[in-house]
Nucleic acid binder design. Structure first.
Length: 424
DNA sequence: TCTGGGGTCCTAGGACCC
DNA sequence: TCTGGGGTCCTAGGACCC
């Protein structure tokens, strides 16, 4: 018989804000927000900001005054810094469990299966302490017999940091009943706005009511996804730990512009840059792609004529050679571009990914040549050593006037020699 | 003036085949 | 005059996640 699994979910507290705090100890216990690209929305908030009533995803311009009034420290997002600190957190975590799934930049599931003789709550407190000591990042940990229940437990821990000391264990059945009875369905992992609405229409408002429902009944309006969540709430594990990182299914590079863009030439530059970024990711994972999609769109929040469209094409053979894909992307862009609109965003999606070693020849026996692959490798090496964009294709442009805003970005303390912290 | 980006999974419906 | 049924594959779109 299969052993009853036990999952722990480790989640970093206000991760982006905590990263900024690591190098700004003066901001400890002070309110901080981190903004999305283009300094558009508030994407991370410390507890101090949450208690001011500033919601997540709120457009920055709407809360600017409030932020100023309460002396909140504001940062543009610095993904290089967050990615580096995330790696350090994950490395520390990996030493505490035989198996781990890195679920996102700030979360990981650990397997505690078979560790019944441990006091898992105390063990988790030790994990928190070690991560904090090694990286400066505070975390909370939820424990449960399924991933969904571990997620619930994590939320409880986060909401009651003082009482729980950042750790909450939902393996006990009686405690589980008590918690689920006051836990709203919309707070369950995997239940979004639409699903919550449907559940409410069926008079299901708490996690306990969902747990008690028949999964087949739930499946009728929430598909197999909803049925799985129902079972997981009932302690039946349906979602396994995903330990081996499968190859990506698609790679996307897209971004909003810092301002409206009308001309085809401007869009071309931006698309060329997105192809460059996407191809770099492709080669980094030793993949090639057989399909490319280009999309463009106007600003849906603006009261101007709206247009969005995309076009894609299959390639004769898989490739990861940037200039080849830029040429194809330009053909696609010509197909979707319409004069007269104010564009706000565009992007490139690469599909049909496969290992570079499994490359197939096209009908005429052609594929990326060794010379082409070596050329791209050399380019990547130079850009990696001297900094992104040291050498780039002319199609990517020089001025990049359409670039996004990031006016309050912190230094790359841990990844750039020139920005390392100095001590007086 | 100013509203993110990068992913995954699931389903319905069309194309195609026998 | 009568005009099937079942399977697979692909894609677009929706929903959700962080």
């Amino acid at each position: 018989m299969k052993q009853q699994p036990i999952f722990a979910l480790v989640d970093c507290n206000s991760f982006y804000c905590s990263c900024e705090r690591v190098f700004r100890p003066d901001l400890l216990n002070k309110p901080i927000v981190v903004l999305s690209n283009n300094d558009g929305c508030v994407v991370a908030r410390t507890d101090e900001v949450k208690s001011l009533g500033i919601p997540s995803w709120e457009p920055y311009f709407k809360v600017k005054d409030q932020i100023k009034k309460h002396n909140v420290a504001v940062f543009s997002s610095n993904y290089t810094l967050y990615g580096d600190l995330s790696g350090r957190v994950m490395k520390t975590l990996s030493e505490f469990a035989p198996e781990m799934e890195v679920y996102s930049i700030d979360e990981a599931f650990l397997s505690f299966t078979g560790m019944n003789n441990y006091n898992l709550t105390e063990y988790s407190k030790k994990i928190r302490k070690t991560v904090l000591q090694n990286t400066g990042i505070p975390t909370c940990i939820g424990i449960g017999p399924t991933k969904v229940l571990a997620k619930v437990a994590n939320k409880v821990a986060k909401k009651n940091k003082i009482q729980t000391e950042g750790v909450f264990n939902l393996c006990d059945v009686e405690l589980r009943e008590k918690v689920l009875k006051t836990f709203p369905v919309e707070d369950i992992w995997g239940i979004g706005k639409q699903s919550a609405k449907k559940l409410h229409e069926h008079k299901i408002k708490t996690a306990w009511q969902l747990k008690m429902a028949d999964p087949n009944y739930i499946q009728r309006f929430l598909t197999v996804v909803g049925a799985r969540i129902t079972k997981e709430l009932d302690g039946v594990s349906c979602l396994d730990l995903q330990t081996d990182i499968e190859d990506r299914k698609q790679i996307v590079s897209s971004r909003s512009f810092g301002r409206q863009v009308k001309d085809l030439s401007e869009l071309q530059e931006s698309i060329a840059n997105h192809v460059t970024t996407a191809c770099e990711k492709l080669r980094k994972q030793d993949l090639k792609c057989k399909n490319i999609t280009v999309f463009i769109q106007t600003n849906p929040f603006k009261n101007t004529p709206q247009y969005h469209n995309s076009a894609s094409m299959d390639l004769l053979s898989g490739t990861s050679v940037t200039p080849k894909l830029i040429a194809q992307a330009f053909l696609l862009l010509n197909r979707v571009y319409q004069k007269g609109y104010e564009y706000k965003k565009c992007g490139v999606i690469l599909n049909g990914l496969h290992k570079a070693t499994l490359q197939q020849m096209d009908f005429f026996g052609r594929h990326d040549s060794v010379a082409e692959d070596e050329f791209m490798k050399t380019l990547d090496a130079i850009n990696s050593f001297h900094g992104k964009g040291t050498i780039k294709f002319a199609a990517c442009g020089i001025d990049q006037f359409w670039r996004m805003l990031a006016e309050m970005k912190s230094p790359c303390y841990t990844t750039r020699w020139s920005e390392i912290l100095g001590v007086k």
